[in-house]
Design a protein around this nucleic acid. Structure first.
Lengths: 244, 244
DNA sequence: ACCTGAACACCGTTCAAGT
DNA sequence: ACCTGAACACCGTTCAAGT
């Protein structure tokens, strides 16, 4: 009950003063393992083997700790090289896959990234790369802003949607109730939905009961990338360059 | 301190037993006014003029109350008519504007919708409409699923990003620190970013310190819609139909 | 500088009891 | 059926005190 250090994290926790990096790493590990709701100052402190209030000295309050956790997860994303790299549409596809890989590695952090503005700090390299690639594709000035916002908003928005939180397992009522409502859909009121239920149920947004962490939406993501790239190409007059 | 009803909500609260609808409406009003963090069972109860535990009888626990709040907000979205309506690309634009109007009417609920899977219940009419329109545009089977996921994921993902939560006002440190970091960007490491800062600062994802609730991203949204529609057109071979 | 230990104001939720 | 009232187990955070 009294919680001095030492039994906290096995071999990896060295002696010596606790460091900020150690706190943030432990917090990300906790989120990855048990979800973002499991991240409480008290629980994290216990896991590290320290008193809760000690965390405040290193990581500030919970909000700034969470921001640091997001930043750490974000740093796991490897950007494709821009100079001497592939043509812009291929680069965007690589970047999309890199972003998706990072988020699937830390799916529990996705809802946090999706809802907060603050966590964007230190993603300047990503911004610069996307901007450079789009500039190279022919976008300038306000249209560069628009294209950039389209790419970031569409891509990350789609991925955050794929990785949305599932209801807590306690709520099996919801899952079974939703499945029943889906099965009982009126084919008069919703004919297209009813007719295509086999390819839609649990595979499409707003029609699924499992998150993309459990059920990755691989093919839909590829098609989304196709649409994004082709749409940008149309904006810049390179329709023929990207293929269907 | 003792909190019987009557002084709770002025004239609008009739006598008689509390109803579920009344609870959910009051909860949405509280979220709209003060943000989702302000929605606690105890505070809501006090506002209605009832004991906290009374809410559980009508609305279940907090998670299901929040789901009901999302559903209520969602019901504020007016779908454009499908049969006898405009061509598919114009319909998609109208739907996009309707979704945006709804979310800008309840911006504080956007982060919840962005992060949770559960809140999708009873959006079957929206799903059916989008599916019908895309089917009419020529998508079938698995490609229909892909196109549907592209539309929903891109559109709502973009809008949730626009309306992300700002840091609490207490955190003026973050805002000013972020602005400084943006101003001090190294034009060697990030030349495109540095050169285009005037059209990017506070107007682009990951480069802004204010949310779209305060600073709507109107023009970028229009361009995003252009890209989405043109990209879908390319998928189905109607490139010439939608215009640039 | 770094951390303990107590304390404060708040949560969501359960449950027995009232009417 | 509908709500009260007390109680429980948890929070985040502050602050004085130790070393």
């Amino acid at each position: 009950m009294t919680s001095p250090r030492g039994n906290g994290r096995g071999a990896s926790s060295q002696r010596g003063p606790l460091t900020r990096r150690e706190v943030v790493t432990a917090a990300l590990a906790l989120v990855d393992a048990d979800g973002v709701d499991a991240l409480t100052m008290r629980r994290l402190a216990e896991r590290i083997g320290v008193y809760p209030t000690a965390l405040y000295w290193h990581a500030g309050n919970k909000a700034s700790l969470l921001a640091a956790v997001c930043e750490l997860a974000h740093s796991d994303m490897e950007l494709p090289p821009v100079v001497g790299g592939p043509p812009w549409h291929e680069w965007l596809r690589s970047m999309g896959h890199a972003a998706r890989a990072m988020l699937h590695k830390h799916p529990n952090i996705a809802p946090v990234l999706a809802s907060q503005l603050q966590v964007t700090t230190s993603s300047f390299p990503l911004s610069e790369s996307v901007l450079a690639v789009l500039h190279g594709a022919g976008f300038e000035g306000e249209r560069l802003t628009g294209a950039y916002n389209t790419v970031i908003g569409f891509l990350f928005g789609w991925l955050f949607g794929e990785l949305a939180s599932e209801p807590p397992e306690a709520d099996e009522d919801w899952t079974s109730g939703f499945q029943r409502k889906l099965r009982d859909i009126d084919s008069d009121a919703a004919p297209t939905l009813a007719a295509n239920l086999p390819v839609l149920a649990n595979q499409a947004f707003m029609l699924r009961w499992e998150s993309g962490r459990r059920r990755p939406m691989d093919r839909s993501f590829e098609m989304a990338l196709d649409v994004l790239v082709a749409g940008l190409a149309a904006q810049v007059g390179h329709e023929q360059a990207v293929g269907g």
